[in-house]
Simulated scan of single mutants.
Amino acid sequence: MTSLFDLSGKTALITGGGSGLGKLMAEVYAEHGANIAVCSRKYDVCLETAQEITQKYGVKTAAFSCNVSDEEDVKRTIKEVIDTFDKIDILVNNSGATWGEKVEDMPLEAWNKVINVNTTGTFLMCREAGRHMLKQNSGKIINIGSVAGLKAEPKEVLNAIGYSTSKAAIHHFTKDLARKWAGNNITINAIAPGFFETKMTKHTLEVKGDAIKSSHPMGKIGDEQSLKGTALLLASRASDYITGQIIAVDGGSSL
Rank of each mutant, 00 (worst) to 15 (best):
E52D: 15
G33F: 09
L158R: 09
S226G: 08
I246V: 15
P193C: 06
R76P: 00
V59H: 08
A26C: 13
I36C: 02
L13H: 00
F85L: 03
T187Q: 06
A169R: 06
Y43I: 05
S95I: 03
S65Y: 06
S226M: 05
V117N: 10
S19T: 15
K87T: 12
F196P: 04
N137W: 04
L234F: 03
D70N: 14
S95R: 03
G145E: 03
E224V: 03
L205R: 05
I88M: 01
L233H: 07
D176V: 00
G22H: 11
L24T: 15
V28Y: 01
R179S: 14
K213T: 09
A152W: 12
S19M: 15
N94I: 08
F196E: 08
W99L: 11
A62L: 02
E156L: 04
M1V: 09
T119M: 14
E206C: 11
H132L: 04
Q225W: 02
E206N: 15
F123Y: 15
T204F: 07
P193K: 07
M218W: 11
T84M: 03
A37P: 00
K155T: 11
G121W: 08
L227F: 09
H216D: 09
T98K: 12
F173V: 00
L91H: 01
L21N: 13
A248L: 08
H171E: 09
A168Q: 12
K60R: 14
A26W: 07
K228E: 05
G33A: 02
L21G: 03
Q55E: 14
I82Q: 00
A168M: 12
F5T: 06
T198D: 07
G33V: 04
N159Y: 15
